[in-house]
């Protein structure tokens, strides 16, 4: 059965392996140069007046295309295993009628499915794991620059978290078994592929929105209002209250900020307007003085930003938990497949 599984899978496996090998080769060739550029730039910028922020920004922008391209590859890879390895696995047999050939050899169909699911599933997980490893290694310097960039790409954030570490392995396992399950239910390859893609995309969107924020209780931090967490400072004509537009940022650059609010001295939420004089005093607009006096005044009055976020120290804990969730989902679907398989004919 292992032979047959391999024989049926080898063309797809070879194509994927070739694509991954090509990717790995390109990354291996360009990676050291990229790391060098980063290291050199970083030692060079420490002497500059504005620190390294300009270098980091430039470095990120120079490599943005490759960075986003690789992110897209990593986002697509699990979906592709679901679409092209998972969905056709059973539908192809059903469409050609060959399930009636193979299920009548001296092998139970449970064993047949176990070997097919096991081998192909492991291959999907290995492909995702290796790709993630290569891409994470190559992107190391860019990731550091990206976190410092505006808008930033924090490691814990919804984009980078999905394409680094071990979660791609969980995604690939889930997408693959999802494809097999949908294929078994729908019985036709193309609709099965379409449904697999839709369901997988929905799960991938739902996960960071509905599940991941609640994996651990978020950390709350109070932050002084300053330029760095302020989107805009509004003054109404004729001297109304001060209008603050806050930006939701985690105190640690690679953290994942969930929400933020403006609170007063007793900890109550205030809407964006702060009752402070904008016609006179520290918060009156004065191009010469700048907003720092106003920030000091806001601090004195007890206004500050409260941010709830997941710090980047939780990265691996979250990665493990989420990979675990996807693995359990995959196993659940696999269990469903085994039960359902008896009724397929």
């Amino acid at each position: 059965m292992i032979w047959l599984t391999w024989r049926q899978f080898r063309a797809a496996a070879a194509a994927t392996a070739a694509a991954l090998a090509a990717l790995a080769a390109v990354l291996a060739i360009t990676g050291p140069g990229l790391a060098d550029d980063y290291a050199t730039g970083l030692t060079g910028c420490t002497t500059q007046s504005d620190g390294c922020s300009r270098f980091l920004q430039n470095f990120f922008h120079d490599n943005q295309a490759a960075f986003l391209g690789l992110t897209a590859v990593m986002l697509a890879l699990p979906a592709l295993t679901g679409l092209f390895w998972g969905a056709p696995m059973i539908t192809r047999e059903l469409e050609a009628g060959t399930h009636r050939l193979v299920w009548n050899q001296s092998i139970t169909r449970t064993r047949w499915l176990a070997i097919k699911l096991g081998l192909t599933g492991l291959a999907a997980m290995a492909a995702a794991g290796l790709a993630s490893l290569a891409v994470s290694w190559w992107s190391g310097p860019i990731d550091k620059a990206a976190a410092a960039n505006e808008p930033g790409f924090p490691r814990m954030g919804t984009l980078l978290f999905d394409v680094r570490g071990i979660v791609p392995i969980g995604y690939a396992a889930f997408a693959f078994v999802l494809g097999v399950t949908v294929g078994m239910l729908v019985r036709r390859t193309l609709p099965a592929m379409a449904i697999t893609l839709a369901v997988f995309a929905a799960v991938q969107v739902a996960m960071p929105l509905l599940v991941r924020p609640y994996l651990r209780p978020p950390v709350h931090a109070t932050v002084e209002i300053s330029m760095s967490n302020l989107e805009g400072l509004g003054f109404e004509r004729g001297g109304g209250p001060l209008r603050l537009q806050l930006r939701t940022l985690a105190p640690d650059k690679n953290g994942w900020a969930l929400s933020s609010r403006l609170v007063d001295t007793s900890g109550n939420t205030v809407s964006s307007t702060v009752p402070v004089s904008t016609t006179s005093g520290p918060c009156a607009p004065d191009p010469a003085r700048g907003p720092s006096a106003c920030f000091a005044e806001l601090k004195r009055l007890g206004y500050r930003q409260e941010v709830s976020y997941h710090p980047s120290s939780r990265f691996w804990a979250f990665q493990r938990t989420e990979t675990g969730i996807y693995t359990i989902l995959a196993l659940g679907l696999a269990g469903f497949c085994f039960r359902r398989l008896r009724r397929v004919s």
């Binding site: 059965m1 032979w3 047959l4 024989r7 049926q8 050609a96 009628g97 060959t98 009636r100 050939l101 193979v102 009548n104 050899q105 001296s106 092998i107 139970t108």
Partner: peptide
Amino acid sequence: LAKVGYVAQDTPTYAGLSVAEHLKLGARLN
């Protein structure tokens, strides 16, 4: 399963596999 042979309607075979590979399939699975 080994005691009962079954030749299904329209006698399905794997289009991509050769005759020899079908025999190998049979040898591996029976």
